[in-house]
Design a protein around this nucleic acid. Structure first.
Lengths: 154, 154
DNA sequence: ACTGAAAGTTAAGATGT
DNA sequence: ACATCTTAACTTTCAGT
């Protein structure tokens, strides 16, 4: 982390807001010329601070307005079962995110579907097909209050 | 949604994987020349399918390895209290995401901090400072199993 | 809607301080 | 670590099919 000076941090803050900013625009905002900006970006990419550049799409326009969080607890906690569950989850396209959690609940899943009926089908024909699931608890997002895409860089 | 043909969908799938693909590369992959690709991208931006372009950073390298999910229930459910809570949450930099949920739990928060001590400070000096919080339940991410950045486009 | 080509910008690299 | 300069590549626009 302390391979980053203030200029690097400003650069990262700008790029995680708008990856289309040109080297020229970045240079102007940071009070430098093109080449140091160019070299810093390449360095930040090389060190892995910048992992990739992506286009952020609108999930509602893409026809997936329903977001659900699904808490899953395993019946048995043998490594083989856990591994199998993780394998299967990775294959399910409805699962946007999956975390192994501390506490009573083993896994937290973030699910995107087109409708409540779609969620029903997901649980019935995909999720519950995975063996060794004990408890399963779903809650739905009514409203997205906040969703930061970037991180706070200190 | 059905303003999109197969070419648009392929374009969106490619751009949400790698926003740095050039028009030339996209054209080659989609079997077209530069100008239709260029115009389609501008159209998809204009219609709002593409919301923005961002650099994806590494939260561990940025010194924020701890992710927690925090379930919050309100004591009273007057509109004024809810509005106030949402306002305050938006100001907290540790809160990456916040959703108003259906069910017993009112809000689900995704929190990023640098340490467990940082989480303690967040709860003690920031979150619990907000009035009208009834129940508060935190769980920590042990391992990220899956985290799709893009959506599945049908 | 797509092709092809022209003009304007930017990225990428080399050289020097 | 940064400034300047060069050219190769890309973006953007437009006439034509």
């Amino acid at each position: 982390m302390e391979q980053l000076d203030e200029t690097d941090k400003k650069l990262l803050r700008l790029l995680q807001e708008d990856a289309k900013l040109t080297t020229k625009e970045l240079a102007a905002q940071l009070g430098l010329t093109l080449s140091p900006i160019y070299e810093r970006i390449k360095r930040l990419e090389g060190l892995g601070f910048i992992k990739q550049y992506v286009a952020v799409l609108d999930k509602n326009l893409l026809g997936q307005p329903i977001t659900a969080f699904c808490q899953v607890s395993m019946r048995y906690h043998d490594k083989a079962f856990i591994d199998k569950f993780e394998e299967e989850i990775k294959k399910l396209e409805e699962v946007q995110e999956c975390y192994h959690m501390a506490g009573q609940v083993d896994f937290l899943l973030k699910i995107h579907v087109s409708s409540l009926d779609g969620y029903h089908n997901f649980v019935k024909y995909k999720l519950s097909e995975i063996e060794n699931i004990g408890v399963l608890n779903s809650t739905f997002v009514l409203k997205e209050i906040k969703h930061n895409l970037g991180y706070v860089i200190h």
